[in-house]
Structures are given as structure tokens and as C-alpha cells.
Design a protein around this nucleic acid. Structure first.
Lengths: 219, 219
DNA sequence: ACCTGGATGGAACGCTGTTCCATAAGTGTG
DNA sequence: CACACTTATGGAACAGCGTTCCATCCAGGT
């Protein structure tokens, strides 16, 4: 006979860090950054919030693992045979695509210092430049620019996604900011409202690549 | 005769948004991002947390205003007579210096989409390039790269400052991340641990400027 | 002297991440 | 097979957060 105060049934499939992280990614993708709480996570896994801490250190641990998983799945398939410039374009745009699909990744990459995926990207970029005969110092400078550039784009993209999820109008948001700047003309605002972010990123990368080529000519 | 349950004395100097924001900056600078709460703010102003909401919409409002104030005080003194390249270097390094002095600004710039200071910077950069005879399209691409680049650096810098405030060793943090990447050689890691961030930013800006010059030659 | 509306300060609400602990399940040992 | 022991579990409890609510107070106009 069961006692009057009965516990909820124990789950049959085992809990694990992988399962927790996978579920976290589900929540983040479908309901946004704000929806990821240990209570929501526990509810979806039919367990208590305390149980999660046996597999995971804390919330940052979950976010770190989730970010790593998403980035790894996109960086991992880099082509070694392409021309260095093409390879670098593909690497950077790969990060963008990952963030486009999972905006919360952008926020997380900007929130924690030197996450492993960022170091991987740094090395990958430097390696392609090395293969192209670029001076070591320039390799480093260029990788720094490209990584931080895409990081900045990522943060901005994630912030916009967050604001939009709150029910704001995409262009209205930007227009409001522009109009707030008491009467100054802004040659930039018009372009910002109508441009394609991915195409803009590609153009930016090409600009940096042009700089690398220029510095390679006369070191 | 005062009643048994007496209220605390009402403050003599008037509360205002400016006062609240100034106090918020004090807290952020001296105790870090995590220390800024409405309760701490109220305590320092000798008032209740509810009173603050008569002058300020919410916490984001305070952070936005604080960020705007810090950035404005550094951007504002830009030199109009310098060579375009020097002016741009000064603009970008000015943002870096502001973030170096107030790391929380870096986190805030990355957290909200298209804040006014960022648009101002965008326009200022584009304007210098316009004066230098750079094609309009390149103006936009270059401004995009530079703004997002410094934004990425800012986010990373703020994240590192946050981690360091938690009592971590600067280089140990990075070394741990490097060693986590099972055995891969990392030509980049050694450089990262010992480089000067500001000097690195300057080198990155120079690389972008080289790209602009290259594209100006053959459009 | 009165009224009234904005400013004030503190309590209360709902939510968060995290810790604690009684309990249930699995595992190796005699 | 029975027992101890380790580990996993789930839910309650805690401290702290942003925000809302409201009784109260003060200043200025009538």
C-alpha cells in the first residue's frame, strides 16, 4: 500500500549531462534565452531542480556546454582544400549561421571570456593565413580582427533577436534610436534599416582580407 | 509626539534621474556589475527602492543612461583637424579607453541592440572616410567592421573583467581554456596570454585601414 | 487654512539560482 | 539471498532579485 503522502514516480530513463544540455538547447531555441530556468528544465525532464545539480555544476555550465555543442557542429566541417580566403570566409560565415539559427549563442559567446570555440576559431583562421604565407604578426592581428568582428556582430544580432522576441518592430527599433539623436543627419541609418546582415558580414570580411593582402605585399 | 512606528526621515535633497544615474555609475565602477541592484541604489541614496521608479523606468533604463553618459564623455572630444586615419584610430581607441575604465560599459553595449552611442560612432567613422574620398559602399563596410570589432573587444574585455573580479587569475583562465582543447597545438595561445589589448586593437584598426586604402586604389 | 497631486519609502509579490536533505534505486559483498 | 553502502532523485527551503503597490508625507495653488 502506498503511503498517504506519495512521492512522484521516479523517472525511468537515466538523467545525464548530455540529456540536460540537449533539453536546454530545445528550450533556448523554441522559447528564447529568458525561458531557460532550472525549474523549466526540470519540468521538461520530469524531475526536480535539485537533481540536475548532480550532473551539472550550475547554469553557466549548461550554457557553456550548449554553446560549445552548437558551435562545434558548424566549425567542425571546415574544408581544408579551399583557397585560404574562401576558407576564412566560410569559417566566419559559419559562426554567423550558427548564431542566426540560435541567437542565444551570440549572447553567450559575448558573456564569457575566451570560450573554447573562440580559441578554436582563432587558431583555424591563423592556420589558413599561415598556409597563405602571411607574416606571423599579421596572422595574429587579422585573426584578432576577424574573431572579434564576428563576436560583435553576434552580440548585436542576439540583442536584436531578444528585443524582437519582446514584440518590437525590427526597423522601428532602429528608427527610434536614430530619431533620439536630436536632429543630426545620419548617412548610416538608412543603410542599416535595409541591409542584409549576412551579406554585410561577408563584405566586412572581404575588407579585412584586402588589408591582409595589402600588408603581405609590403611587410 | 512621534508615533511608535515612525517612518524614516524624508530626504532633503531632491531625487532625480541624473542623481540616480550618477550613483549607479559610482556603484558600477567601485563594486562591479553584479553590485548594481535597486536595493543597493536605494540604500546609497537613503531612500526606498520604490521611489526610484518615479524617475526611472526600470533597470535597463538606468544602465542605458549610464552607458550613454560614459561614452558621450569620451567620444565628444573628437578632433576634426587630424588626418582621417588618425581620427578613426582615436575614435576606436577612445571607446576602448572608456571600456577599460568602466568594464561594465562593454557588457552593456553588447547587451542591447543599436544603442545611440554606437550609431554615433558609426556615423563619425563614416564621416571621416567620406572626407577622405572613400567610396560610399566602402565607407559603410569599413564602419561596420570597425564598430563591430571594437564591440567584440569590449564584450570580451568586460567578460574577462567580470571573471577576474570573481578572484580568478588572468592568465590561468586562458591557460585552462587552452588546455581543455585536448592536445591541439595552439600557435595563438602564447600570444594571447602576453599581449597588450590596447596595442592589439590599434594593430587591428591599422589592418582595416590598410584594407580601406587598398580598396580605394582600385574600386 | 484647506485641498490636492506628485514624491517618497517600505512592504509585498513572483521569480530566480542554488543548497539541503529525506528517500529511493542500484551495486557489490558476505 | 540479505545486507550495507553509494549514488541519484525530487521537492522543499533560502536568499536575493526586479518590480508593483500603497499608505503616507510635503509643497504649492486657491
Amino acid at each position: 500500500m502506498t503511503p498517504a503522502k506519495q512521492r512522484a514516480a521516479r523517472r525511468s530513463d537515466a538523467l545525464s549531462k548530455d540529456l540536460i544540455v540537449a533539453t536546454a538547447i530545445e528550450i533556448l531555441d523554441s522559447e528564447g534565452e529568458g525561458a531557460l530556468t532550472f525549474r523549466a528544465l526540470a519540468r521538461r525532464l520530469s524531475t526536480g531542480s535539485g537533481a540536475l545539480y548532480h550532473h551539472v555544476a550550475n547554469k553557466d555550465d549548461v550554457l557553456r556546454a550548449a554553446t560549445g555543442q552548437v558551435i562545434a557542429s558548424t566549425t567542425h566541417k571546415s574544408e581544408h582544400d579551399a583557397a585560404p580566403a574562401d576558407a576564412i570566409r566560410a569559417l566566419i560565415l559559419g559562426i554567423f549561421d550558427a548564431i542566426d539559427a540560435h541567437p542565444w549563442v551570440g549572447a553567450q559567446l559575448a558573456r564569457e571570456p575566451w570560450q573554447v570555440p573562440l580559441l578554436d576559431l582563432f587558431d583555424a583562421v591563423a592556420e589558413r593565413l599561415d598556409a597563405d604565407g602571411v607574416a606571423e604578426r599579421t596572422q595574429f592581428d587579422a585573426a584578432s580582427v576577424l574573431v572579434h568582428y564576428v563576436l560583435g556582430v553576434a552580440a548585436q544580432y542576439a540583442a536584436a533577436a531578444r528585443a524582437l522576441a519582446g514584440g518590437a518592430d525590427p526597423s522601428a527599433l532602429l528608427r527610434a534610436a536614430v530619431e533620439q539623436r536630436a536632429g543630426e543627419r545620419s548617412p548610416v541609418a538608412a543603410r542599416l534599416t535595409e541591409h542584409d546582415d549576412r551579406e554585410q558580414l561577408r563584405a566586412g570580411v572581404d575588407l579585412v582580407l584586402a588589408g591582409i593582402a595589402a600588408l603581405k605585399g609590403r611587410p
